[in-house]
Design a protein around this nucleic acid. Structure first.
Lengths: 204, 204
DNA sequence: TTGATTTCCTGAACAGCGTTCATTAACCTG
DNA sequence: CAGGTTAATGAACGCTGTTCAGGAAATCAA
């Protein structure tokens, strides 16, 4: 009696359809412009149907972001796995982090540039889920810094403090370019590369 | 015949009342939670009256931010005016910049962390006004860097490139702490101070 | 003191939003 | 086929920014 299985498969398929439709809108127009009605229209269901699969809009968009940030972790792991010198690995990984932000502006802004008051009256678990996204990547940064110290490329010191400093700076480069607040930046590639060199020089 | 003058004074006063009411809500609840109806209620006017003084919500909030960032420029000028060594002046000014962001989270997030798609369908002049805010402060940074080079504290180089790098990093520290995306940061003061030292070390 | 004119302000309306919930329709089980 | 379960919906609630025809009040000219 595979009825159960088929039903739950159909349920998963609809969930997938919702996620895909929402992702398309989210990527193109950002969180604020994702609307439950737009999603529903595009998959030809009623808006209320979405609530059978997601608690609320934040829960839906968070699910999208979790998938995307898993992709970041894969990219980072692929760099780490190349067995390059610690300092070079670190630089490439940070470069990849920035590139990920530039490639997925809506995701990056939603997770790292959206203040809490935008998520007024939402389930706290939805909120904490958002930041589970980032913790995996940060753990990789911490490990990378540790390797640099062990290898003698960086003076021994408080790994946590240095990791957070470096993340803040790299986050600044990423968010500054992603948000694009109308500032007349110089050539992107050059700005990113020179910024990274300076950030690593400051830590070494 | 001071009628004209009185009338235009009354007009200014109402504009002021709107700005003050909006500022209160903006500070407490952020851009997204500012509503024309809330503002109107709190000053006992009809929502439509606000549109006689401001083109739209973005125009209103932008006016608020321009006032606030003028305050930042004053703070920076007061530091610059102390005649300290260039490097020390630079460090203190950057510290003040970060502090300004922490003191005025709603302002900082609105100007520097809000992507363009949030301002969909708005007058382009409203948008460009937002970033006029920041240009003054950035010009001061550029001058400060130039002084450091002239003084021999920094190797001669592309002032624009270094200024933008440093701003991106300092912006990262500010926005990272202001947005507070749930990350377990170490002690704020220490994180800020150590980050600043590393940023300046990377440029020197 | 009139009447005309300008200025200020408003109420209602439009189109959109996230979300809830009673009700219906479809399906599976026995 | 009856009973029960599940899926999906339409209508509604209370918000949002914004527009605009119309009214009220203050000013000006005669």
């Amino acid at each position: 009696m595979g009825t159960h299985e088929r039903r739950s498969r159909e349920k998963d398929e609809l969930r997938r359809k919702i996620l895909d439709a929402a992702t398309r809108i989210f990527i193109e127009e950002g969180y604020e412009n994702v609307s439950m009605r737009k999603i529903a229209d595009s998959i030809e269901y009623a808006p209320s149907t979405i609530y059978l699969h997601f608690r609320d809009k934040v829960d839906l968009v968070t699910s999208i972001c979790i998938e995307a940030f898993a992709e970041l972790d894969r990219r980072l792991d692929s760099i780490i796995g190349q067995g390059l010198p610690p300092m070079e690995t670190l630089r490439l990984a940070l470069r990849e982090y920035i590139q990920f932000g530039l490639d997925h502006p809506a995701y990056y802004v939603f997770v790292f540039c959206t203040p809490q008051y935008v998520f007024k009256d939402i389930d706290p678990t939805s909120f904490s889920n958002i930041h589970t996204c980032a913790m995996g990547s940060f753990q990789r940064l911490r490990t990378g810094i540790q390797s640099c110290m062990t290898n003698g490329d960086m003076p021994a010191g408080d790994v946590e403090s240095i990791s957070q400093s470096i993340w803040l700076c790299v986050h600044g480069v990423t968010s500054g370019l992603v948000v694009d607040c109308g500032f007349p930046f110089i050539d992107r590639e050059r700005l990113i590369d020179e910024s990274l060199l300076r950030i690593l020089k400051g830590a070494a």
